[in-house]
Each structure stands twice: as C-alpha cells, then as structure tokens.
Design a protein around this nucleic acid. Structure first.
Length: 337
DNA sequence: TTCCGACAGTGGGGTCGCAAT
DNA sequence: ATTGCGACCCCACTATCGGAA
C-alpha cells in the first residue's frame, strides 16, 4: 500500500479503490453563474484561457488528450516530456496556455493548437505551460471519489512542477474579493470549486464559472437569415461609432427567445436598406446578410474584443431604448465583476 | 407536482488546410 | 490568387424531455 494511502484519514480512505489506469476522457466541466459568493467549503482558482488537457501516465509513457477527445501528443511534446519522466502512474487534468505578456492569450495558443507535428511544435516559438489543477488517479488507485482538497494536496506532493508544468494555486473561501482582484488583473475570471466534492465526468454544479463580465451597448446594423428550424433571423450584425463613422463589430446570435426572434425580425424588416451603414462592410460576409438603418441599440455581453475589433463569446441581453446610436463607441474595459 | 440535468440545435470568433472558383 | 468550407479550439443560450426530488 502506498504511503499516501496509508496516511489518509480513515473516513476518506474507503473512497479510494484499486483500478487499472483509465483511458476514457470525459472531463468535469463547470457551470456558468452570476451568483458570486464566498464560502468556507469552497476554493477558487484562476480561470485560464487555453486548451483543456488530460494526461494519462502509466509510469513509462504519457498520452495527452483534448476535451473532444483528440490526441494532443504531437501538438505539445514539450508538455508530455516532463510528465513522462515521472516514475509513478497518474492521471491529471489541467489547462494548456500561452502567454502574451502577463496574461494568457487564447489567440496566440491557437496558432500552436493547429500544429500536428512534433518537430514543428517544438520549434514553433510559441511557449506553452500546463496548469494542472486535478489528480484523478495515482499509483494504481482511482481517487476521483476523494474530496477535492485531498486530491489537490496529493497532486502538489506527487508531481514535480518544473519547467512548463505548473500547479494551479487556489484561494480559500473569499470568492468575491478574489474575483474583484482577478478582474482588475485582466483575468477571464475564476473557477469556484466545492472542496468536498469528488471528480465527476461532465457538467457539474460542484464547479462554477465566475466570469469577469464585459457588456456594452452596440448599434444594430443588420441581420442574417435563419437556418434550419430557427425562426425570425439568425444573428444581429453589430457596430459602433468612431467619430462619424460606423464600424462593423461582428455578430450576435444567441440570447433571444422565440418571441424576441419574431418581434425583432419584424422591426428589422421595416428598417432594411440596400446600403451598408458601416464603412467596413467587406469584413462582414455578404451571404444572407440584410443591412438596416442604424437606429436600434442592443445591450451585448461578451468576454473581450478580438484583435479584429469583434466581440468574443457575444450574447444578446436586450434592447436599449434610452440610448442614441450616435453615442455608441467602443469601450475599453475596465472589466467589472 | 415541480425542478433539474442532459442533450440537441442554433448562434458567435479564430486558426489552419484544402478544394472549388 | 481568392474564396469558401469543414474541423477543431474556445464558447452562450433556448427548448425539450425524462427522471429525480
């Protein structure tokens, strides 16, 4: 019996069972919530903007998998190497990230993500880090039923966190204060985790996403045709003013219920015009696009502006009748909680 | 009976590779 | 040479249905 198992408190030792190294990939996923809280039984980790990765190590060789699951061995050999030097068997869960300065950059990671050749990956010049946040299996034992605190303690003790491997630190209890700090630092948000809970496959409420929200008004400059069973329209085309010029800012296609799809579509149809109201209409693909007179203002939630001046992860929150389109400009966050 | 979790379907930005234009 | 499209990454959200509470 391994030493760590012998040292486990008697009330949790029964939750550990001998098992062969698992090979199924089905990671635990967090649920998004606006209900931010602090609680002594919860811990809070930085939410990293990268690619999810599970690593399976049998004591000799290591396999990396994405969430899908697809093998990531050829993409991140520089992550696999340091894991493969360990003598113990384990399964860990974490996030692979790339940095742009001090903050993680998903767009930078994407260039690395596409590489499917080891040699090419190694000389890509895009340095990546593996932030490990959970341990599911150790030395021949399935430990997914152990409380998270125990799993994280064992994780920190059991792996050598050097070079691109990093242990994901957490803060206890104070979720709200930590989120405030996180947003000021320009992080994407936090993951709140029930410290007593076991590791479960799939979406769970034992893990919650606290995101730093961005939202602002955008001018509605057009809409697209619906597809499939969709009623009304597909997405709204959005814009903002820079001086007297209206610029295209991408689309939003979610957040509407059936009624809003129908009502908004009727209003938009009445505003339709041939000429695009934006100066950079070429950025919007023309297929199925209808331009409208820019008189409506919508409140949009999103995570960040992309390099191409579009909204990332946009969702429609409602119309703003109190705001004049001319006052809609690109607001640089200032992320709020 | 009501509520919740899982799933399907529709929508977004971005990257890359490859086929059609 | 340019454009379009699918496959993966990251997602948000609505509607529905069956089982848990």
């Amino acid at each position: 019996m391994p030493k760590w198992l012998d040292q486990l408190a008697s009330d949790v030792r029964g939750k550990v069972s001998k098992a062969p190294l698992p090979d199924d990939v089905n990671p635990m996923l967090a649920t998004l919530t606006d209900n931010h809280f602090s609680h002594p039984d919860w811990l809070f980790e930085r939410k990293l903007d990268g690619e999810r990765c599970l690593a399976f190590h049998d004591g000799t060789s290591t396999r990396l998998y994405s969430r899908k699951p697809k093998s990531l061995d050829a993409t991140y050999p520089d992550i696999r190497d340091p894991l493969a030097t360990h003598e113990r068997s384990f399964v860990v869960d974490g996030e692979i990230v790339a940095f742009e300065g001090k903050t993680t950059s998903f767009s930078r990671l994407q260039k690395r993500m596409q590489i499917k050749n080891e040699a090419e990956a190694r000389q890509s010049g895009i340095k990546v880090y593996y932030y490990v946040f959970d341990l599911l299996y150790l030395d021949g034992y399935d430990i997914t039923a152990l409380p998270l605190r125990e799993r994280k303690r064992l994780l920190e003790e059991s792996l050598r966190f050097e070079a691109p491997l990093r242990y994901t630190q957490h803060r206890n209890e104070t979720g709200e204060d930590y989120l405030k700090e996180a947003c000021q630092k320009g992080w994407e948000g936090l993951i709140a985790k029930d410290a007593q809970a076991g590791y479960r496959k799939g979406r769970s409420k034992k893990w919650l996403k606290f995101k730093c929200v961005n939202q602002q008004e955008m001018v509605v400059v057009g809409y697209t045709d619906p597809e499939g069973e969709r009623t009304g329209f597909g997405a709204l085309l959005l814009g903002f003013y820079e001086g007297k010029q209206l610029h295209y800012a991408g689309r939003v296609g979610t957040g509407f219920d059936e009624r809003e799809l129908k009502d908004l579509h009727e209003r938009l149809r009445a505003l339709e015009q041939d000429e695009p109201p934006v100066v950079d209409a070429a950025k919007a693909k023309s297929k199925g696009v209808h331009w409208v007179e820019p008189t409506l203002v919508a409140e949009i939630g999103f995570t960040e502006w992309t390099d191409d001046n579009r909204l990332r992860h946009p969702r429609y929150l409602g119309l703003r009748d109190d705001k004049s389109p001319k006052d809609v400009i690109k607001e640089e966050p200032g992320a709020r909680t």
